[in-house]
């Protein structure tokens, strides 16, 4: 029931964001030069930022971009993790050891530091769209090692199981066993990992953006919108400045609660 409620609430948020973007006459990058740092008006329900851009539209776009980007990145990450985990689980021991050592190498640096380092070493002066793509691709390709370890453990547990031996004795190849039995069995492990990944990636993007290494302007992102909080003059002028962070917290809580519910039932 709780799982359904959280899913419905998240869907409602997404629908409201889509409706806001399609209903508003402002785009996320459009500037209203007559209304810079404007308070709440009929034209700008949540006011504008220091460049005169509609805050409600930008928050809605940030929600959709963040959610879509993090979901896609999580999907890529989980596919890579599943690939590496399964390969390690069903390979000779030395290959498994090498793959796990490689994934441990990724884990030997704190996640945010590693992300920051890799992101900064990629081109920073690219187009806004490229920076958005780069940020989420970096998240996707650096987020897999911890999940690969979990999937490797799961695969290792199955490798010696009786039904696996029976399958081999019946003449099934390793590929057939993986496709028909192992992957469906591991779905209960992969799905929660994916759900944990999404809020973690949204959080990482927000932190990266707050450090100036996230999605480039004028594309709205959680990180870029958090940077608004640095402007004290802006904070005094309108309480709507807190809208993005409030919404971000709500979205993350929904996603985390959803993930924990699935974990319980998995």
């Amino acid at each position: 029931m709780k799982k359904l409620l959280t899913a419905v609430f998240l869907l409602l948020l997404v629908l409201v964001a889509v409706f806001t973007l399609s209903w508003s006459r402002w785009s996320y990058a459009a500037q209203d030069r007559e209304a810079i740092l404007a308070p709440t008006t009929a034209v700008h329900p949540a006011g504008t930022d220091e460049l005169g851009r509609d805050r409600l539209v930008r928050t809605a776009a940030a929600l959709l971009i963040g959610l879509t980007g993090a979901t896609l990145a999580a999907a890529i990450s989980i596919v890579v993790a599943a690939g590496v985990g399964l390969l390690a689980g069903f390979s000779p021991r030395w290959i498994a050891a090498a793959l796990m050592f490689f994934s441990d190498g990724f884990l030997s640096l704190p996640w945010l530091f590693f992300l920051m380092m890799v992101r900064s070493l990629l081109p920073l002066t690219a187009s806004p769209l490229m920076t958005a793509v780069t940020t989420f691709v970096v998240l996707a390709f650096l987020g897999w090692p911890a999940f690969a370890r979990a999937i490797y453990r799961g695969a290792l547990g199955m490798r010696g199981s009786e039904w696996m031996i029976q399958g081999r004795a019946s003449g099934l190849t390793t590929w057939q066993l993986m496709r028909l039995h192992v992957v469906p069995q591991l779905r209960s492990l992969i799905w929660p990992q994916f759900l944990i990944c999404v809020p973690a990636f949204i959080m990482a993007e927000a932190n990266l953006g707050a450090l100036g290494l996230g999605v480039g302007e004028p594309i709205p992102s959680w990180g870029a919108m958090l940077m608004e909080l640095d402007n004290t003059a802006l904070l005094v002028s309108s309480h709507w400045v807190y809208l993005p962070i409030a919404l971000l917290v709500v979205v993350l809580m929904i996603l985390e609660s959803f993930a924990s519910e699935v974990k319980v039932y998995a």
Binding site: P199, A210, W222, L226, L229, I245, L248, L252
Partner: peptide, 8 residues
């Protein structure tokens, strides 16, 4: 608290 980014 878990849902608030450190920077925020």
């Amino acid at each position: 608290l878990l849902a608030i980014p450190v920077a925020a």
